[in-house]
């Protein structure tokens, strides 16, 4: 069984052609701007929509572990008590409660994936594994990768690169394309902001570029207040060139994930202002001069 957050069909921005994306649960990083915060922990997370809630408290009555309580008419959820029975979700007639994350068998996931095989074939598309960070569930990931290759499907993986290098060696033969996050070039800023170890990311990136630089694309979430400055972004382009990577994607900062924080009863701490794609056009000439194809928005 794999803990997944979602399976998205007809995804058009996560690799070549028409794709199905399998979003794994669980991530080692804690980027404060994360657009999929519900996928950070491996277990399912309750999402509460206060706009739909009518305050009837039926969910509280149906919760067998008292994980849900209304205090001062305010909905609260205690994750440590929740057993994910989803009685609350079923009890709510107003669709105010849902859960992000479920366990699904690999066969079940494969069945879903197969449904669009004709579309992958005609468009040279395939399957993208995303998250979260799929390497967090490494044994399950391997099992899924093998199944995908048995069926000769093109596999792209979107990864932050934060996992042991031996995992990468094992998974490498089953993956056709890596969308590899390069969030920053500075170890300290990386550690203090996203709570990760950039050296490990660097090692994995170097492994991949040594093997075949054409199978890796750098993906850079451009985040104001973190990496949105000429020095950092040009340095990432330089890094690509240094490792013979030919394609880099700058993904402009957006706040589309903000509503999820509200539903998770958490505060969103990063900037409320979205970036426009055009803002990043200015990096294209430099990238071009370095022989790098820079795409804005992926």
């Amino acid at each position: 069984m794999i803990n997944i957050c979602n399976i998205e069909r007809f995804a058009t921005h996560d690799g070549p052609g028409i794709r199905t994306v399998v979003f794994f649960q669980g991530c080692p990083l804690r980027c404060p701007w994360c657009a999929n915060p519900e996928s950070q922990i491996i277990q399912a997370h309750l999402l509460y929509d206060h706009k739909k809630c009518v305050g009837c408290q039926v969910c509280e009555q149906h919760c067998p572990t008292k994980a849900i309580q209304f205090t001062d008419h305010r909905f609260t959820w205690d994750r440590s008590l929740c057993i994910h029975c989803k009685a609350c979700e079923q009890a709510c007639l107003h669709h105010a409660i849902s859960f992000a994350g479920e366990q699904r068998s690999i066969d079940d996931i494969m069945e879903e994936i197969r449904k669009d095989k004709d579309y992958y074939r005609s468009s040279h598309g395939g399957v993208t594994i995303s998250g979260g960070e799929a390497f967090m569930q490494f044994p399950q990931l391997m099992e899924l990768l093998k199944k995908l290759k048995e069926e000769d499907l093109h596999v792209t993986i979107e990864t932050c690169g934060q996992f042991p290098s031996e995992y990468l060696e094992q998974a490498y033969p089953y993956i056709d394309l890596f969308y590899f996050d390069i969030k920053h070039v500075d170890d300290d800023i990386y550690r203090s902001t996203v709570k990760g170890n950039r050296k490990q990311v660097q090692r994995n990136m170097e492994y991949l570029t040594r093997k075949d630089p054409d199978k890796i694309v750098f993906r850079v979430p451009v985040i104001p207040g973190f990496n949105y400055d000429d020095k950092t972004l040009n340095a990432i382009i330089d890094l690509a060139k240094q490792h013979h990577v030919k394609e880099v994607h700058f993904l402009p900062y957006h706040t589309l994930g903000k509503v999820k924080y509200e539903k998770m009863l958490q505060d969103y701490t990063w900037s409320p202002t979205m970036m426009k794609e055009e803002e990043l056009e200015k990096y294209k000439p430099y990238a071009l001069s370095q022989g790098i194809t820079l795409k804005i928005g992926g």
């Binding site: 007809f10 058009t12 052609g17 028409i18 004709d118 579309y119 074939r121 005609s122 468009s123 598309g125």
Partner: peptide
Amino acid sequence: RMFQKDREKIKYLFQTYFAK
């Protein structure tokens, strides 16, 4: 946005549907 920006993929989508 989808119809213009992802035109090639939309074409594949339609072509496949028609082929099916």
